[in-house]
């Protein structure tokens, strides 16, 4: 990988992006959006506003039709799909709303899973198992549970904390959290946000959290409304 260094300091940068899903029914137009290294950004958007599409573009699952998406200076646009998969593995940690874990693996195995696809992240962990356990301890997850229990036996709150650990392992520069608290009750939600901020601060990663719940926006460096940065493309305007 040869990083293009022109915007090297930004964890994420989108410029003049235009994208339409195959079939042309829905797409997105993003003029300019970037997240600096270590910055925490709350992206607000109601459902159906194109959040999933934007995240797909950032993660390199979908490739832009025009414009440029770059992660820590590495331009994704124009790269082969396999290359984009590799960059996603190396440079992002993803936390979903729920069902974050592969049910038949232990939490520990789930946490180590991204390292299988990201050798550079693995290199950053001297001892991946120890690194994973250090993370889970700070997330108040007991070791025996992390090492032995099948992920499917954990509570939703525990699963979300394991998901934080998986996103953080090997210090990827950008953490993407997609409605990570919507399955949690309000106490657990506060706990989760606290732990997430704590971890992001420790590793120095940038955080992009997407949610429709503005109540979570406090403590973020920046709050952005999706409608301010992106324009949805609908129907046959594509």
């Amino acid at each position: 990988m040869t990083p293009v260094t022109s915007h090297g300091t930004d964890a994420l940068r989108l410029k003049s992006v235009r994208f339409t899903w195959p079939g042309g029914r829905f797409g997105l137009d993003v003029n300019e959006f970037s997240i600096a290294a270590g910055e925490t950004v709350f992206l607000y958007g109601p459902s159906g506003s194109g959040k999933s599409t934007l995240l797909s573009l950032i993660a390199g699952i979908a490739s832009v039709d025009a414009g440029e998406v770059s992660l820590q200076g590495q331009v994704l646009s124009g790269l082969r799909a396999a290359m984009r998969d590799r960059i996603r593995a190396e440079r992002t940690g993803v936390i979903f709303q729920m069902f974050n874990l592969v049910p038949y693996l232990t939490p520990l195995e789930n946490i180590l899973l991204p390292l299988r696809f990201a050798p550079e992240r693995r290199k950053r962990c001297e001892d991946p198992q120890a690194a994973a356990l250090t993370l889970t301890r700070t997330l108040s997850l007991p070791d025996p549970m992390v090492q032995q229990a099948p992920a499917s036996t954990l509570s939703v709150g525990q699963q979300q904390r394991v998901a934080i650990a998986r996103a953080m392992i090997g210090h990827p520069p950008l953490i993407i959290a997609d409605e990570p608290t919507s399955a949690l009750d309000s106490d657990a939600r506060a706990d989760f946000m606290h732990l997430l901020f704590d971890q992001v601060a420790r590793s120095g990663a940038a955080l992009l959290m997407v949610s429709h719940d503005r109540g979570l926006a406090e403590n973020f460096d920046r709050v952005v409304s999706l409608s301010d940065i992106a324009r949805p493309i609908r129907g046959d305007t594509a």
């Binding site: 998969d85 996603r88 696809f117």
Partner: peptide, 16 residues
């Protein structure tokens, strides 16, 4: 599907 999406998210390609 869920499991496959998780694998995709952590960096697995469709080929994997």
């Amino acid at each position: 599907r869920r499991e496959m999406a998780i694998l995709r998210a952590v960096g697995a390609g469709p080929m994997t």
